[in-house]
Design a binder for these strands. Structure first.
Lengths: 210, 210
DNA sequence: ACCCAGATATTTACATTGTCAAGACTCCTC
DNA sequence: GAGGAGTCTTGACAATGTAAATATCTGGGT
């Protein structure tokens, strides 16, 4: 009879089982509630049911944990990008699909998303972070480039890509209200999904024109 | 013989002279150095040469001081908007002028700018904040609306305005690196001024098309 | 000239946080 | 079933934000 270790409540054991995962989850939850600034290492430890110094062993410091969460978020974004464009051939349709995927991640993973763009809280020089965030960006740039190649050879690809990235990022930022109540310039009450379609349409009209 | 109060070094006096202004200045400086997260009320007080509790009397708490700085920033933005469009009649030229003014403020007032968009650190329900940030936004929306009226009656003004705001904001965000070293998706080495011109061109092409 | 009320700044105090170092516990391997 | 690596806790320290009590200055009325 082996002891039913795996069925025992994690709280009763000295070793947590999968503390890193629990800490990531608690972080995401906390950030979604209080915003990236309301994050606290000790509160995360509290929610995971461990002592305040436990996270250090797995993630180093506060920045390390948040960076790990940011990497998770960008990984999800890359996956969503890939899923959204599989089988889609027309470059314009692909670009629209990327936009929708971006919004989807921003909406369904508010905690991750807020951390991903809190550049002051994470280590943007982290290798894994650079790799995965760069991959997401390159996916977008490549698709914009395809649009140009297909519809408008004279398009400044670099400028168009930056514009697209800025627009979709700015939109997500304006829409992503974590922690604090509601904010200033009013995001309007138009839902995000519809918004991204409008953006795609407007941007693509500009891109396709020669 | 009146005592030369006004000529004495401020440090020797119990009363500071204009502490609110000194605290705002110290805040802007500190944020420009260490980013909005590196901000600390005690450090600001230290730089202003007063005790750590002095700011409370003028700004309430930490959030109050940052909110005041954000209001200053948006006020400067509104002023820059007004200055940039005086005498400019064509709606498209006006819109481009607004974009340049925005970038100018973002570039020349990094500290203010970082605080303006740190929604988690300021009180976005503050009346003065809502007034002045709303005014800036309305200025932009109105101009986009004028573009539509002049060149394309069928343009969805609301969508176009949000896109413009998102784009210019996203760009400024990606470009505005306070505190931390350098960041991820690489803003490229194209300078901001040129970038905003490219954006204007691309966006306006899309807007003008029917 | 004097004094006092209100504004301004300091001092003291306390709870919270991030990080470090030292110790306790557990699990796996030999 | 002992040892060692990995995991978690405990205790401590400096820094921070905020509140309350105290000290100092300023300006105006008498």
């Amino acid at each position: 009879m082996s002891t039913a270790r795996t069925n025992e409540p994690a709280t009763s054991r000295y070793h947590h089982g999968d503390l890193p995962a629990a800490l990531r989850a608690a972080t995401v939850e906390l950030v979604a509630e209080r915003g990236p600034v309301g994050f606290s290492l000790r509160e995360v430890a509290r929610r995971a049911g461990v002592s305040h110094a436990a996270p250090a062993h797995h993630f180093g410091d506060s920045r390390g944990l948040l960076t790990a969460v940011a990497v998770d978020g960008f990984t999800m974004l890359c996956d969503a990008f890939d899923r959204s464009t599989v089988g889609v051939l027309d470059p314009m349709d692909r670009l629209t699909a990327l936009g929708k995927a971006y919004v989807e991640v921003a909406t369904n993973h508010v905690g991750h998303f807020a951390v991903m763009w809190s550049e002051n809280l994470i280590d943007t020089t982290d290798e894994r972070f650079k790799e995965v965030s760069g991959r997401a960006y390159r996916n977008l740039v490549g698709t914009v480039s395809d649009v140009a190649r297909a519809h408008n050879p004279e398009l400044d690809v670099d400028a168009a890509a930056t514009l697209t990235w800025s627009a979709v990022h700015g939109l997500a930022m304006l829409h992503c209200k974590t922690g604090t109540a509601d904010s200033a310039p009013s995001n309007g009450d138009v839902d995000l999904q519809r918004r991204i379609e409008q953006f795609s349409s407007l941007l693509l009209q500009g891109f396709a024109q020669r």
